[in-house]
Amino acid sequence: MPSNQEPEAPHSVLPYPPIHDTAPFVVLSDWDGTITDKDSNDWLTDNLGFGFDKRRALNLECLEGKMSFRDSFRQMLGSIHHPFDYCKEELKKNIKLDPGFVNFHTWCKSQNIPFIIVSSGMAPNIRGVLSTLLPGPDTENIDIIANEVNFTDPGKKGDTWEIVYRHPESGFGHDKSQAILPYRDLEHKPTLFFCGDGVSDLSAAKHADLLFAKVLPNGHSDLKTFCEREKIPHVAFTDFNKVLEKVKEVVEGGKSVQQVLKEEGN
Results as ranks from 00 to 15, higher is better:
9 A>T: 10
13 V>Y: 02
14 L>F: 05
18 P>K: 01
20 H>R: 08
22 T>N: 10
23 A>I: 01
23 A>K: 01
23 A>R: 02
26 V>W: 00
30 D>K: 09
31 W>S: 08
32 D>T: 06
32 D>L: 07
33 G>E: 00
33 G>D: 00
33 G>N: 00
33 G>R: 00
33 G>C: 00
33 G>V: 00
34 T>S: 04
37 D>K: 12
42 D>R: 03
45 T>I: 09
46 D>M: 10
50 F>D: 11
54 K>Q: 11
56 R>P: 07
59 N>D: 14
61 E>M: 09
66 K>M: 10
67 M>S: 10
67 M>V: 10
72 S>E: 08
73 F>I: 06
75 Q>G: 06
78 G>T: 08
78 G>V: 10
82 H>M: 04
84 F>L: 07
86 Y>I: 11
87 C>Y: 04
87 C>I: 06
88 K>A: 14
92 K>G: 14
99 P>D: 14
104 F>A: 03
112 N>H: 11
112 N>E: 09
117 I>N: 01
119 S>D: 11
120 S>Y: 04
132 T>R: 14
135 P>N: 04
138 D>L: 08
140 E>T: 14
141 N>I: 09
145 I>V: 12
150 N>S: 14
154 P>N: 10
154 P>C: 09
155 G>C: 09
157 K>I: 11
157 K>N: 12
158 G>K: 00
164 V>M: 02
164 V>S: 00
166 R>G: 05
172 F>R: 11
173 G>V: 00
175 D>R: 08
180 I>N: 00
182 P>E: 03
187 E>K: 10
187 E>S: 09
192 L>Q: 00
192 L>D: 03
200 S>T: 15
203 S>H: 08
204 A>F: 06
204 A>H: 04
205 A>M: 03
206 K>R: 13
212 F>N: 03
213 A>S: 12
214 K>P: 02
215 V>S: 08
216 L>A: 15
221 S>R: 04
222 D>H: 14
234 H>M: 03
234 H>I: 00
241 N>K: 13
243 V>A: 12
246 K>Q: 09
248 K>L: 05
253 G>Y: 02
254 G>R: 02
263 E>M: 02
265 G>K: 02
265 G>H: 03
266 N>I: 01
